[in-house]
Design a binder for these strands. Structure first.
Lengths: 132, 132
DNA sequence: CCTTGACTTGAACCGCGCTTCAAGTCGCAG
DNA sequence: CTGCGACTTGAAGCGCGGTTCAAGTCAAGG
């Protein structure tokens, strides 16, 4: 019908996600097909962008239902806005913690402590963050 | 017997982990009790430090078996060292991505786009990273 | 028209990281 | 000695994020 629409195989290929995952996301309300070509789902190309965002958020530790909520966010939803602000603080802390962990790993690669886990420099990763 | 050893209930309380999780970690080889008091596990206080490290790594997205490997690392294990170097690069990328996501969330909190997900500034989160 | 093969469905299954349960053991206070 | 309650075990169960399977549909090419 509309050749600007793409089918699930192509979306899978271009997004790097399995077709089964795309159907799963649809059941969860994260994406939807614009229409059908016979039985086959026909997706708008923008879906790829949306999927990239979904993958990013999922990698960041968001659950799929959180992502679904955030994707539906309207500027008037103050409760959701507050949840996003909370999530922002959470992500900030994760950034700090991951940064320390990265530094520890970086050190581990050249460390001679035996076992590595005993190295005080390595243990930096686990340093208490103020207001943890 | 040895009152420097602490029992599972206290470890649970002080680590914030459930006793069931501690037994689970033991089965997975992540921690071990120094001895037993009757049937009861008796842990060395250093276990708490180790658990903090485990929690940190787990929050960072390491699987429990990865963590077990890394905890056992000896400086002579070159293969493991290489895996840690790889993990370091992975963590670096996650830091970058999370940083972008944090910035997007920060913006989302004050954004007026409707729906939010259409905001170009918000979409920064998903910006392609060179050599992704 | 007929085959091919990518799609469709719902349901069952998976690995991970635990938690819960049932049944039993034991240390310690009274 | 008698509870009590915190511990012990193995096995089963759970929520998440999907994958796999069986059986069926259908579009397009030869």
């Amino acid at each position: 019908m509309d050749d600007t629409l793409i089918d699930i195989g192509e979306v899978a290929r271009r997004s790097g996600l399995a077709a089964s995952a795309l159907r799963f996301y649809e059941r969860k309300g994260l994406i939807r097909a614009e229409g059908r070509n016979g039985l086959r789902r026909a997706y708008r190309p923008e879906t790829l962008e949306r999927l990239a965002l979904i993958s990013c958020a999922r990698d960041a530790g968001f659950t799929l239902s959180e992502i679904a909520e955030f994707l539906a966010a309207r500027p008037s939803d103050e409760r959701l806005r507050a949840r996003m602000a909370a999530k922002e603080r959470e992500v900030s802390q994760r950034v700090d913690q991951l940064t320390r962990l990265r530094d520890s790993l970086r050190h581990a690669v050249v460390c001679t402590h035996d076992p590595l886990v005993e190295c005080p420099e390595f243990k930096q990763a686990v340093r208490r963050v103020p207001q943890g």
